[in-house]
Design a protein around this nucleic acid. Structure first.
Lengths: 201, 201
DNA sequence: AACGTATGGGAGCGATCGCTCCCAAAAGAG
DNA sequence: CTCTTTTGGGAGCGATCGCTCCCATACGTT
């Protein structure tokens, strides 16, 4: 009943995510959002309550799209886990560069900007981090089952090392660092998992 | 000539650094700064020109104190470089916790918040990053001269890996992650440098 | 066609933003 | 002392902040 919307709510959230991702929370004004989404203030507030709620929705949208896409790429299709990890990390540091480098990871950017003060945000960023850690753990477990041991590192240590490195890579991509240098770091951390096991004959 | 200041300029910069460090640039208002520094707007602007200039001074002050202190701790006093690195990284993720955890690194926080848009800021954060990388490189070189090779990794790879890991650790400290988990990541990356060489008899 | 309901548009709210100006107070220079 | 210079204090500038309200519009319902 009533007059239908002239805009697509999901599309609006996507655009809002894009803007928050690039500029951060505090540097993005409601008027900026209204211009970018093509919404008047009344529509924006009736639909999304307020700026903070819209930001939380943007964060959830990011987790449901970008983050999920990232974890899908951690699925082995029978490939060696070192290759999966390498391709995944290389993709992480180049995917935001498509069209526009220096965006980094929305979750990481948000955690550093608001994580220390905003509990609702912190809860979401920590959940996103946990998902990534869990995906890494699963991958390493699968590698062990398939005879690709990570020598010299127990499971916890390998997960923490990889996860920490990924956060560092995200920051460096945001900072505009040379992708080749990031690739060097990626190869180094893959090597830290131990020598590539011999191909079964 | 003229009336002398009733406040210490260096002390004011220190307090401003503290506030910018905790809240970031955009979330810190000039009135917040005035209250924290005990300065009226007129004194603040006469002394520091404007908010942005004061921020740059805060960034420089941080580099001249915290960053320099960090690089001093990378000096080997004849200790094995693995021990130096380990102690250094452990200190990095616990030093901001003295009194107040979740501050992270001012340079890293700033690079993610403003690095993509503010060239003057970017220039400073990149300079700070270069200093850290150079310090790591020097340490590794010294280790090689003293018969502590970093097996399996050439110099560039080791530097990039360590530097990236440090950025990740800084983000995680800012995010309030468990220090013990960070210690696990630290031990893992130290182990990635290769086995500890045997003690010379 | 008439009604009920939610929308898009926009003026504008009080508060705060970064910043400026004016003036009395305070100390060195003569 | 007087003069000069710079300070601390504070009112308040125009602009923008996040947000609210009102109303004509447009669609589903009956």
């Amino acid at each position: 009943m009533g007059r239908p919307r002239q805009f697509d709510e999901q599309d609006a959230v996507t655009r809002a995510t894009d803007l928050f991702w690039r500029r951060g929370y505090n540097a993005t004004s409601v008027r900026d959002l209204g211009d970018e989404l093509g919404l008047t203030p009344s529509s924006l507030y009736r639909t999304f309550t307020d700026k903070h709620t819209l930001f939380l929705r943007a964060l959830d949208h990011y987790r449901a799209t970008e983050s999920v896409q990232a974890e899908q790429r951690l699925d082995t299709d029978g490939r060696p886990i070192r290759q999966v990890l390498r391709d995944w990390m290389l993709w992480l540091v180049t995917c935001p560069a498509d069209g526009e480098p220096g965006r980094g990871c929305f979750v990481v950017n948000t955690a550093t900007e608001l994580g220390a003060t905003d509990d609702q945000v912190r809860q979401r960023t920590e959940a996103a981090f946990d998902v990534t850690r869990q995906a890494l753990r699963s991958l390493l477990c699968e590698g062990r089952r398939n005879g690709e041991p990570t020598t010299g590192l127990d499971l916890d240590a390998a997960v923490e090392l990889l996860f920490t490195t990924v956060l560092g890579l995200r920051v460096r991509e945001r900072a505009g660092h040379d992708p080749e240098r990031l690739a060097t770091a990626i190869d180094a951390v893959i090597g830290a998992l131990g020598p590539m096991p011999a191909e079964p004959s």
